[in-house]
């Protein structure tokens, strides 16, 4: 399952990521961080829809988002790809 991880303390709540997500799963959370900004989240239960396209991370001005993309079985991470050394097995 592809997924995105938000670094909550860096988010400034500009909402640009909500506009570019092709699945529309990112939304304002109602939570506030220590900087005092209302931050975004992936709506509960909607993370399965994430395709790992990284559009949200590319438009984020504060590099809040890290994107993990699923590698299909039988499709090993190619040598030299950025994710090679971190490919791992989920429990």
């Amino acid at each position: 399952m592809s997924r995105v991880v938000f670094l909550k303390e860096r988010c400034k709540g500009c909402l640009l990521c909500t506009q570019v997500c092709p699945k529309g799963i990112i939304a304002l959370s109602g939570e506030m961080n220590q900087q005092g900004y209302k931050i975004v989240e992936v709506a509960p239960g909607k993370m399965e829809q994430c395709t790992g396209c990284a559009s949200c991370a590319m438009i984020c001005p504060d590099t809040v988002i890290t994107v993990y993309k699923t590698v299909k079985p039988g499709q090993p991470v190619k040598p030299g790809e950025p994710g090679e050394e971190v490919a791992r097995v989920n429990g």
Binding site: M1, S2, R3, G52, C53, A54, A57, M58, T63, I65, T66, V67, Y68, K69, T70, V71, P73, V77, E81, P82, G83, E84, V86, A87, R88, V89, N90
Partner: peptide, 9 residues
């Protein structure tokens, strides 16, 4: 299931 980092800082 394996996963790779598609985007990071």
């Amino acid at each position: 299931m394996t996963e790779k980092i598609a985007f990071e800082r």
